[in-house]
Design a protein around this nucleic acid. Structure first.
Lengths: 236, 236
DNA sequence: ATCGCGTATTATGCATACAAACCAATTTCT
DNA sequence: AGAAATTGGTTTGTATGCATAATACGCGAT
């Protein structure tokens, strides 16, 4: 955009550094990431002015992003007092696991019925990639592929609503950074469970798959709840 | 999902008559109602200027409400082109019913385990109130109590996440105004099913309750899908 | 009459200005 | 001294202005 003499290019705050300006809708994505990644800890008050600086936008799009994420449950709106990052409570996390259990069970059933061979092949590929990182002891990378597998499983059901609902809950739970608390034994066991899950999926054994998924998620919940209780017992 | 929008609603006695100005957070509620009630039909373009007039607010809070509801899935954001009320497609509705089926099943299980006797008593009261309207042939009133019962069931599980997730999906599905298409036979059958559901809940018979709920929801889906296909086959 | 194309109008996206609510610290009154 | 009130500064909530992208319109050509 070429600026004339009269318009001294009144663009938003800063743009001092390179840091390319975010597209509007990217403000939502970026803010969500900041929350899910833990860059903004649970309970943190969202000061609009500060956020504007970090996201390099004016208040209007930032406030809109906050509203969007409030609906998603990642932030809580407090009338006349702005918003805070939704605190993580043990109760809420347990609730989410229970709901995710029902959704994963459904996903297993639908995946056996509807997934294409290509879908399953891709999950298989992700599985082996995950094994690579397990072998190397790369927890963060392992975790990323682990997440991918679970997401692909719900996606390949063909039920978009199911996938979206699952993804939203998963985003919440991920904020509890239980990853670090994974013992070697539990890690190895989780990998073994994934091996079985993959096999059941490849055989399209719906009943078995559902049982495995339920068990796997139950174990995961135990790890998370332990991690939560070791951190502050209260609101995080 | 879980919003902390507590609106104090401290309006003076003065503004009873003259179309009281909406509190800010009420803009969201009002707009949601307009969509769920069908006042804004699926597919409708949301013109900000027009909405501002109807909601008696400036663009900023209205836009924030739109973003909030976009996250809920009730409106779709189209970059540089504003927003439209999310169209209802047969595919999406069927997907939602499948997910709601899993959630209601879970709710039945949890309700049998966790509901207080008072919770069950209240559902029972709602049930009889529903019967009153069925006897009188008052479909709209019947339907309201019907909804209440299903909502109370998921609420009395004690799992807030479950209730919120269910409520969101339910709001979407309600936009398909299948109510009018309920035949007398189906109506009577639905009431009979509710009778059985109530009995299973009172006996806290988890297995039976889950089966009944699943069956009931399946029948409901058939009605809705028929209604959908009778309306425009395409996007509504 | 229909299709293309350039211009006018409108709507959206973003930034900012203004008003009301909130918070904190000091001051005043009991 | 302690409680209540006051006041300055900060933050949120709402309204409005400006720039750009999208749409609608009208004219000319085929």
């Amino acid at each position: 955009m070429e600026q004339t003499l009269e318009t001294p290019d009144v663009r938003g705050p800063a743009e001092a550094a390179a840091e390319p300006r975010l597209l509007a809708s990217e403000v939502i994505e970026r803010l969500r990431d900041m929350i899910v990644q833990g860059e903004l800890a649970p309970g943190t008050k969202l000061n609009e002015r500060v956020l504007c600086e970090r996201l390099r936008h004016s208040r209007t799009p930032v406030r809109e992003a906050i509203k969007y994420l409030a609906s998603e449950g990642l932030v809580e709106l407090v009338p006349n007092r702005g918003a805070i990052v939704t605190p993580i409570t043990a109760v809420a996390v347990r609730e989410m696991f229970v709901v995710m259990g029902a959704l994963e069970g459904l996903a297993g059933e639908l995946a056996c019925a509807n997934a294409s061979d290509a879908d399953i092949a891709e999950i298989r590929a992700l599985h082996y990639q995950m094994l690579v990182h397990h072998a190397r002891g790369e927890l963060a990378e392992y975790f990323r592929y682990n997440q991918q597998i679970h997401l692909r499983l719900v996606e390949c059901t063909g039920n978009v609503t199911l996938a979206n609902t699952y993804r939203a809950l998963n985003g919440h739970v991920r904020r509890a950074r239980y990853m670090a608390n994974l013992s070697r034994e539990r890690w190895d066991a989780a990998v073994a469970e994934h091996e079985e899950i993959l096999n059941a999926l490849m055989r399209r054994d719906s009943v078995k798959l559902q049982a495995l998924l339920r068990n796997h998620l139950g174990n995961k919940m135990v790890v998370v709840m332990e991690a939560l209780s070791k951190q502050s017992t209260e609101i995080m």
